[in-house]
Nucleic acid binder design. Structure first.
Length: 662
RNA sequence: GCUGACGUAGCUCAAUUGGCAGAGCACCUGAUUUGUAAUCAGGCGGUUACCGGUUCGAUUCCGGUCGUCAGCUCCA
């Protein structure tokens, strides 16, 4: 206590956003400072920030700095609310299940969760009961009371909570302040900040239960995690829940079924069966990449199955064998062959099969070969996580002096590919990890080359210090899907290790052997995952160049059937994917079917159109608006859109993609 | 792999406390010939994922296997 009283004698200076200052004794509660600015502001306030650090209203302020009052309009306030929501959840759970040991309960991007250690796992019924109990806790309006305690005091308070005791052990020998928060019957070890009392949590919903390892460690016990979300306003919560529903509708697994693109069968878990329609999409993507890589790249094909000597050289046999599908070799009676999980080693073999001159570099091998990785069953998920997939893989062999130019070119290549689909990516730059190979000079040069290329793009990037591969730094490209998930698709990795392991060389200008450097490059990650993202991004309404069925010609009555069939034959002769729907159904029925199948163009032909060589064009998702145009003009328009890989016809739903990820 | 939930017709889903397994859509047949989001009538379709157990009787209860989903872990 004597510490506090001497501290109180000191004054601190708080600078408000408008430039005014408040001089208060150190230890003054944030709430009192806010109150001195205005009573209304105090009632609207949730927390405050001092020099950007968010603390709650009950925190004694000890240092001078920029002082900002956080109201519910500030995004940081939502984080505070959700974190408090986690405590309220734990309060409710503890009331109904006093045996529950408490783990961690943080705010996350879309809400919050809390982990509990319980004998009997929670059920969906429990979830409903917890939510009802939370409403009681909210109604009881318990203040969140902050206390700062000594390690001994904290241990005394959490003696019955083994998980908290373990957390407290981390504070041993640290001078970090230990704070606890109490709301009514519940006490938690917590840094804060929190809303002033439980009544602030008005609009929330418990969403799901899942297992989660204590401290993320597979070797530790599995806790029961409850996921939930909360918002300041009712309509925000409803909008969020609505978006979750909408996201489900554009889930690639749902659309894959309804649009008949692919399916999975228990006879080959984790490997897609692509239907004719789905195959069209994959083939178009591959054709586009081939087109882009016609010059400067060498497309190659290498075996799928290898004996272990290759994997021993590459290092996979030691480090990656668990993820490889091993195959019995009848000669040896051992499982000493494997399907390839990556292309790299086979490309090194290809490179090593000849002598290379510096004049050939950079030498770019690209491939679309099939890869197999034996993922654990729990990891499989639709097309985004599979056991068999194709990468648009490329390995570039080059001299160190060529790295900067090459990387700059690759970044542009990858970004412009994404742009074709209207996708935006965020870039991450991963630098040298603690355990690594190669000299510091080499890393300096490699990182400088990558960084220079990144900065040349003018795009923002996230620096992931120490997150690089052991063999070199890398740039990763994250693309966001409609449900807000970020998928790592593209990657550019510098590799100084593989050339050593495989003893690769080229003959330099000086007529002696030199080590090349290798760049690993992928653009779409895998065709499977990329297709999944495109399905969700476009909500199944593909631009015409990707659409499995581009034109559906519909005769109004049987009399125009032959005219329609002739039109389809004409379109198909031009390479367009056209079909005729002359089924014995009403026009309404067939139009509806075309809309639901998300066919970009429906060309309706009746008496007028048949006589005048026109079509009544219905553009996907534009309702009754229709255009009458000549067959020639229509054909030219579609051909042009296909040729330019235009994003047309723009799906109405695409606008919601941006909102969903925002 | 781990925790939990789930698995019924091609698809989406029903089926009281264990008592003959249903509907809509799709598909097939017929009528209808349609001017822009579901014409009418009839019909076909199931070893209730698989294996075993309890029971007079199992879609229902129990165990196992496989698969799917939500996460954890991992990852293109």
């Amino acid at each position: 206590m004597s510490d506090l009283s001497t501290a109180a004698a000191d004054l601190i200076v708080l600078t408000l956003p408008d430039g005014n200052t408040r001089e208060v004794p150190a230890g003054t509660l944030a709430r009192d400072v806010v109150g001195s600015i205005g009573a209304r502001l105090l009632s609207a306030s949730v927390a405050v920030a001092v020099d950007g650090e968010v603390v709650d209203l009950m925190t004694p302020l000890r240092k001078s700095g920029a002082f900002v009052v956080i109201t519910d309009k500030d995004p940081r306030a939502l984080e505070v609310l959700r974190h408090s929501g986690a405590h309220i959840l734990a309060t409710a759970v503890r009331r109904l299940r006093p045996d529950a040991a408490i783990g961690f309960g943080p705010a996350i991007d879309d809400g919050f969760y809390y982990d509990f250690d319980v004998e009997k796992p929670f059920t969906p019924d429990d979830l409903a009961a917890f939510e009802a109990e939370m409403r009681k806790v909210v109604a009881e309006k318990y203040a969140f009371v902050r206390e700062e305690v000594s390690l001994e005091e904290a241990r005394a308070r959490f003696a019955g909570d083994p998980l908290k005791m373990e957390r407290l052990a981390d504070f041993e020998g640290s001078d970090e302040v230990i704070s606890v928060y109490t709301d009514g019957p519940f006490v938690d070890l917590c840094r804060g900040p929190h809303v002033p009392d439980t009544s602030y949590l008005k609009h929330f919903k418990l969403l799901s239960i899942a297992g989660a390892y204590w401290r993320g460690d597979v070797k530790r016990q599995m806790l029961q995690r409850i996921y939930a979300t909360a918002f300041w306003k009712k309509d925000e919560l409803e909008t969020h829940l609505h978006q979750l529903e909408e996201a489900k509708k554009r889930d690639h697994r749902v659309l894959g079924k309804s649009l008949d693109l692919f399916f999975f069968s228990p006879v080959s878990p984790g490997a897609a069966f692509w239907t004719e329609r789905g195959t069209v999409i994959v083939n178009e993507l591959q054709a586009y990449l081939r087109d882009l890589q016609r010059d400067g790249y060498q497309e190659i094909r290498t075996p799928l199955l290898y004996n272990k000597s290759l994997w021993e050289t590459s290092g996979h046999w030691g480090k990656y064998r668990e993820n490889m599908f091993l195959v019995l070799d009848n000669e040896t009676g051992e499982h000493d062959m494997s399907l390839k999980p990556m292309n790299c080693p086979s490309h090194y073999v290809m490179y090593a099969s000849k002598k290379h001159s510096y004049r050939e570099l950079p030498l770019r091998f690209n491939t679309y070969d099939v890869l197999h990785r034996n993922e654990v069953t729990g990891a499989l998920s639709g097309l985004t996580r599979v056991r068999q997939f194709q990468q648009d893989d490329c390995h570039i062999f080059l001299m160190e002096s060529q790295i900067a130019d090459e990387v700059r070119q690759l970044v542009q290549f990858i970004l412009s590919y994404y742009r074709t689909f209207g996708l935006t990516a965020t870039l991450k730059f991963a630098t040298r990890p603690a355990t690594r190979i190669g000299s510091d000079d080499m890393w300096d040069q490699a990182e400088a080359a990558l960084r220079g290329a990144l900065e040349a793009t003018g795009l923002p990037y996230e620096l992931k210090e120490g997150d690089g591969a052991f063999y070199g730094p890398k740039i990763d490209f994250d693309v966001h899907d409609s449900i807000g998930r970020a998928w790592q698709l593209g990657t550019i990795q510098l590799d100084y290790a593989a050339p050593e392991r495989f003893d690769l060389s080229y003959t330099g200008e000086d007529n002696s052997a030199h080590r090349p450097v290798i760049i690993h490059r992928a653009v779409s990650g895998s065709f499977e995952r990329f297709t999944a993202i495109l399905i969700e991004h476009f909500a199944g309404a593909f631009p015409v160049w990707l659409a499995p069925e581009q034109i559906r010609v519909i005769p109004i009555a049987d009399d125009y059937r032959e005219t329609c069939e002739a039109l389809v034959a004409r379109f198909r002769a031009k390479g367009l994917r056209a079909t005729v729907d002359a089924r014995n159904e009403t026009l309404n029925y067939r139009v509806r079917d075309g809309e639901m199948q998300k066919v970009p163009y429906m060309a309706v032909v009746g008496k007028r159109e048949a006589e005048e060589s026109t079509v009544a064009l219905r553009v996907r998702h534009t309702g009754k608006k229709q255009e009458i145009l000549s067959v020639d003009a229509f054909e030219a328009r579609v051909l042009d859109e296909v040729r330019t890989r235009a994003l047309t016809p723009m799906p109405v739903a695409a606008t919601t993609t941006e909102e969903a990820s925002a």
